[in-house]
Design a protein around this nucleic acid. Structure first.
Lengths: 127, 127, 127, 127
DNA sequence: GTGGTCTAGACCACA
DNA sequence: GTGGTCTAGACCACA
């Protein structure tokens, strides 16, 4: 499995691993039922400790994205994309609420936010 | 000076102090030239350690928002609101870029972002 | 033989198998002399590994509840219900002693224990 | 603080520490507000790693029995003995339900349970 | 000074 | 072979 762990990055190794696997699963590159590489193997490949891989897998399991079975291995779960999206929308809203709180101190208005959104997302009109 | 430090909050004490003073300054509640309470006094009032207040003041000084003068005290700086806003806009853009990166994994589109923005900022048409 | 192995359960597969067979034997559903299904057959039926069934049988043999005969199969042993009950009573006493140790820390008294016993075992007067 | 960690015991070190501190707190030997020894100090005294003590403290914090404050230390919480007792009664009931499940397989009846209870708790009539 | 996080390996349980 | 638990220390953040 193609995964990069940068030792220079300030995001911890387990988080880098977690995010890359998550992305592969959510984008469908790793379909439901796929067996992930064993903890030991991936640890060896990435040149990190098994604890680090273990933690990445553990958090993915907490997110219900994979399931780990003692003595058997770790497997990709069936994903309900809609509920995942909804859940993430909620988190996003929290983040934006935070941003809103700060922004008003700096005199930033809705128009400024829209400007940034338009700049970053370009002219795709949505859907 | 009216400042609340919640011991329960997970944001550290020095950060709570820093943000509240910053808000007062940026919103104009504390105009340029105002003298801040001495570190010792504020520490006593807020029931926190001197080191904690010192750190808050230090960071505000690094942000050029206040200036501390040996033996005289700390004073609110002249603020160029426009450049502060511009600086913050850059930070905001970085944050939004991050959000954009994550969002595409979850199948979130521009329209979803706009929906959140409209919901949070209401119908203020901007400017 | 009717046995359920839940892959979701947190008790390991071999333990689920062991307990269910044990129950059938102790309650008399499988009388002494009965031949158990072969390891291979049961593994296939239950959709688990041979090693898993083997372990369940092994432990039952250690408990003298079944006996395995090279090349012939596994058979239910003659059970002396009284001595089995006595043995289990000893284990139970150990467990209750443990519970007693903890309970006093929490201020739980004999009356509280009796309340629970009465609630769970209902009004059967015993014997 | 008087704490024994037996390296021979099969209960893990962090659990031994957790239980002994918990007992001291619940019995009132460590009243609310008391500062616990720092993680490092206790680790040194008990000759275990700081992780081990950390974990003991962490679990006590999850149980709301102590509270840890970064940079300040760990402190004994105010305990509501009644709710603690009620919570433990529930756990106890679960355990007894489990015991009941096993017992019926072995032909153990309410009277047998009562016999054990009477033997262990003696003739204290309750309260 | 304090507690918190990350990475680590030895050892254990399960299939 | 697989994953799970425990103990460990280096390093970081906070007061």
């Amino acid at each position: 499995m193609q995964i990069q762990v940068s030792i220079m990055s300030e995001t911890p190794a387990y988080e880098q691993i977690r995010m890359q696997i998550k992305e592969k699963i959510l984008t469908g590159a790793l379909p439901a039922g796929t067996q992930l590489p064993s903890i030991r193997l991936m640890a060896k490949d990435l040149n990190v400790g098994i604890i680090t891989v273990k933690r990445a897998y553990e958090e993915l399991e907490n997110e219900k994205i994979i399931v780990s079975m003692q003595g058997k291995g770790c497997f990709v779960n069936e994903i309900d994309r809609d509920s995942v999206k909804k859940m993430y929308m909620l988190i996003l809203k929290e983040q934006m609420l935070d941003i809103k709180g700060f922004s008003c101190i700096y005199g930033i208005k809705k128009s400024d936010i829209l400007e940034i959104v338009n700049e970053l997302w370009g002219d795709e009109i949505g859907r």
